[in-house]
Design a protein around this nucleic acid. Structure first.
Length: 335
DNA sequence: AAGACGCCCAACCGCATGACC
DNA sequence: AGGTCATGCGGTTGGGCGTCT
């Protein structure tokens, strides 16, 4: 096991950070900015490598870090984004102001682990008369009616999209739930974007048809059209970088010689506070999001098991022959 | 009360990427 | 073009802590 290249020649401390170390790092960065991380440990008086300092700052000490439990909205957004982009934690974290990739990754891993355990496959030495399909339906129903958050993944309950759709009992008994057909990655098996949209459109169409037939219950579906209240735009390109330093005061993130440190500390704190507040206001209000170009919206919220294609009744629409394709695709503003 | 167990999460590691020379 | 270095990212580890027996 080697060490980081930046700390090969140094005797560096490892493991948990002490409050004193945190204080040193905070003091240094609030005064100097982080500039070159490899120089931070020496200048801050820390027996750590630069990489470790960077990680500590980004994942824990940053003033805009948002701690505490994930909200249901954040959970839904994480699941949606994970369905779209897979394990690209940094990308997912960029859509959740104040959350770090590490935090989301940890949350996802523990959550999924829990879910997988909870929804472990039905007993194989089944001696009852119910069918496998009935078992899965019951499992899905139990999941939907009892679990929090109100989200489930088809792969967790061992069902495919077809099976869910064919199970009217499941849909009738699951009002106001959020379904995700998640294959865990963006790998579409060579499917191009156009056919991916078609597949998603078919799914949406099927869902709405089922929904209309049921009349009495609403099955809530999250997808990219912005048609439902759970939709959250994935990109906040206009958001100020949480660590952006006023260029008039700082040069390349390094303090300008001769400036009064106390004054700069106050300005730094004020800047961080303002940016954090701005981010939160944007998240809470939704107002800014409405201004975001819909073309930025990620089209890949809904996926389902790849095996779906081999199951009966799931024909992929041929764009050349489908009569209602235009109508379906009109659900996607980016097309 | 105390040891075993399991979970959470901070931190580490190795690799990829980009900037610079 | 190729080497070096810094940074970013995702996978993994292991210590701490709460719960269970």
């Amino acid at each position: 096991m080697g060490h980081h290249s930046c700390c090969n020649q140094q005797k560096v401390k490892r493991g948990l950070w002490s409050p004193e170390e945190d204080e040193k790092l905070i003091r240094y960065i609030t005064t100097h900015g982080y500039g070159c991380w490899s120089e931070v440990p020496e200048k801050a008086g820390l027996q750590r490598c630069g990489k470790s300092c960077r990680l500590r700052w980004i994942n824990y000490l940053r003033p805009d870090i948002r701690r505490g439990r994930f909200t249901p909205e954040e959970e839904k957004l994480i699941i949606s984004l994970h369905g779209a982009v897979g394990n690209r934690w940094a990308h997912i974290a960029s859509h959740l102001p104040g959350r770090t990739d590490n935090e989301i990754k940890n949350y996802w891993n523990s959550w999924i682990k829990k879910k997988l355990k909870k929804f472990s496959k039905p007993s194989t030495n089944n001696t009852t008369s119910i069918t496998d399909q009935q078992q899965r339906s019951q499992l899905a129903y139990n999941t939907i009616t009892t679990s929090q958050p109100e989200i489930f993944l088809t792969q967790d309950i061992g069902m495919t999209k077809s099976q869910v759709l064919q199970d009217s009992t499941l849909l009738i008994n699951s009002p106001n739930q959020l379904f995700f057909f998640d294959n865990g990655s963006l790998d579409t098996g060579g499917t191009n974007n156009a056919s991916l949209f078609q597949e998603i459109s078919v799914l949406n169409s099927e869902f709405w048809q089922v929904d209309q037939q049921q009349q009495q219950h609403q099955v809530q579906i999250s997808y990219t059209t912005g048609m439902d209240s759970n939709y959250l735009p994935p990109l906040i390109e206009t958001m100020v970088s949480p660590m952006e330093i006023p260029s008039s005061k700082y040069n390349n993130n390094m303090i300008v010689e001769g400036q009064d440190n106390n004054q700069l500390n106050e300005e730094w704190s004020s800047t961080c506070s303002r940016i954090t507040r701005t981010n939160r206001e944007m998240v809470e209000s939704n107002e800014e999001w409405s201004q975001i170009d819909t073309q930025q919206c990620c089209p890949s919220y809904l996926f389902w098991d790849q095996e779906i294609r081999s199951l009966g009744g799931d024909e992929i629409i041929d764009p050349n022959t489908s009569n209602n394709l235009g109508q379906i695709l009109s659900s996607f503003p980016s097309l």
